[in-house]
Structures are given as structure tokens and as C-alpha cells.
Computed example of a mutant assay.
Amino acid sequence: MLFSDRKRVVIEVDGKHHYSVGTTASPRLYSEMAAEDRRLKLAGYHVFRFGGYELSQPGAASMLAGFFDEIYSRMS
């Protein structure tokens, strides 16, 4: 997302394939994800991550609406 005053936002939705191989957690995949977060932040992006599980829970739509309201008010 790009805001008028050049603030840049990245929204990530992570499923288990972002941090595991099959059903086993992968320190390598997690480290790659963390390194990419750092790279984006150093490039001037605000990075926000959501877990896929989080978005499948009751109330997720309301939580997302609140998040987008808040991000818009802070970045605009």
C-alpha cells in the first residue's frame, strides 16, 4: 500500500508454508522470513504480518476492518 505522503506498507499473510516443511517447523524458513522483513524495513516499508490461522477465526473480518481503519488513520 502506498499512501500520499510516500509512506509504504507491506501486508503479509503467512500460512504454515512460510515457516515449516510439512508439519515440521523450519528454522531456515523462519530465518529467511525474518531477513526479508528486515530488508523491507530498511528500505522504508512498514511491515505487518497476519497468520493464516488468525484470519480463519471468528471475528477476523471485524479485526481486519479495525486494522485497516487504524493503518489508514496513522498513514494518511
Rank of each mutant, 00 (worst) to 15 (best):
Leu29Gln: 09
Arg8Phe: 04
Phe3His: 02
Ser26Asn: 05
Lys16Cys: 05
Val9Cys: 04
Lys41Val: 15
Gly51Met: 11
Leu42Cys: 06
Arg6Tyr: 13
Tyr53Trp: 09
Ser62Ile: 00
Met33Arg: 15
Glu54Lys: 02
Val13Lys: 03
Glu54Val: 01
Pro58His: 05
Phe50Arg: 03
Arg28Ile: 12
Val9Met: 01
Val47Asn: 04
Gly15Glu: 09
Gly15Thr: 08
Val13Ser: 10
Phe48Ile: 13
His46Thr: 11
Arg38Pro: 00
Lys7Val: 10
Leu40Val: 00
Arg49Glu: 01
Phe3Cys: 04
Arg39Asp: 07
Tyr53Val: 07
Met63Tyr: 07
Glu54Gln: 14
Leu29Trp: 01
Asp14Tyr: 11
Asp14Asn: 13
Thr24Pro: 00
Pro27His: 10
Thr24His: 11
Val13Ile: 15
Gly59Tyr: 04
Arg8Met: 14
Asp5Gln: 15
His46Arg: 13
Ser4Leu: 11
Tyr53Met: 05
Arg6Asp: 15
Glu32Asp: 12
Leu64Thr: 04
Glu36Ile: 05
Glu12Phe: 11
Gly51Pro: 00
Arg6Ile: 06
Ala60His: 06
Arg39Asn: 09
His17Met: 12
Phe48Val: 15
Leu40Cys: 04
Ser56Tyr: 01
Leu55Asn: 05
Arg39Thr: 12
Val9Pro: 01
Gln57Gly: 00
Pro27Ile: 08
Leu64Val: 05
Phe3Tyr: 15
Lys7Glu: 13
Ser26Phe: 09
Val10Pro: 02
